[in-house]
Amino acid sequence: MDRRETLRRLGAGLAFSVTNPGGAFAFVADEPVRVGLTPVFLDDQVSFLAAWRDYLAQSLGRPVEFMQRGSYREVVELLRQDKLHFAWVCGYPYVRARRWMNLLAVPVYRGEPLYQSYLIVPDRDTTTGSIFDLRDRIFAFSDPDSNSGYLYPYFQLVEAQASAATFFRRSFFTYAHKKVVEAVGLGIAQGGAVDGYVWDTLARTHPDLTARTRIVARSPKFGFPPFVASRAASPELIRQMQEVLCAMHEDRAGAGFLAQLNLDRFERGEPALYEGIAAMVRRVGELAD
């Protein structure tokens, strides 16, 4: 692992020297700020994203590029390869890659930088009371790198000394929280784990989707999926980006985007926010061993 880490650092240094032949701090003027997005929020609103991107570009005085991929893993990988400056990822990958990811900003949702994982079932199912009632059923996870959509329910099963591999009759990943809601609502799966913030937001924008599901259980609160910076982002860019994000709620346009995102604002945030997730990761690691 150490050897791999060294190699990676080497590669990053190489990339830096190539992109900055002058060795100065000056960026190439046209070089866009690349931001990776994951379905930790409703990332399928294309026109909204274009407007938000333009807003960020204007605030930064530089072009901004949003990059979306099919899974968290791909975005994290791009981040690791320094192909992205920033990314909005889940707390789970952040905890795992804290060594080379810097916390940029944390969304504030309903007054605190925290969110929950919901366990949902089809609305016809009126008996299920916890995940343990779903033994031998079909279960939908959102993403293997999602805290709310995978780690937390997995952790629950492991804690209960249930074999996560055989507890469900079958489980599958939809790679988006919204699709978990769909899978459960349509009856493809008899249970699903979903980001509480996404479910709440969907309940406002697509009440027909959430109306077909029922929330069975809510997890303890965890740190909200954060914006992180890769090593590709200079301290100056990080500072600028932090300022832009954390000041969004102060101007009208920014407040409009936040309202559409169903968020209060962004704040700097502390790595300690993710201690709950980190503890779960450790516990799962211990138990799995």
Partner: peptide, 9 residues
């Protein structure tokens, strides 16, 4: 790839 959701979509 046993990707049920993809097949369903």
């Amino acid at each position: 790839h046993d990707d049920v959701w993809r097949a369903f979509e």
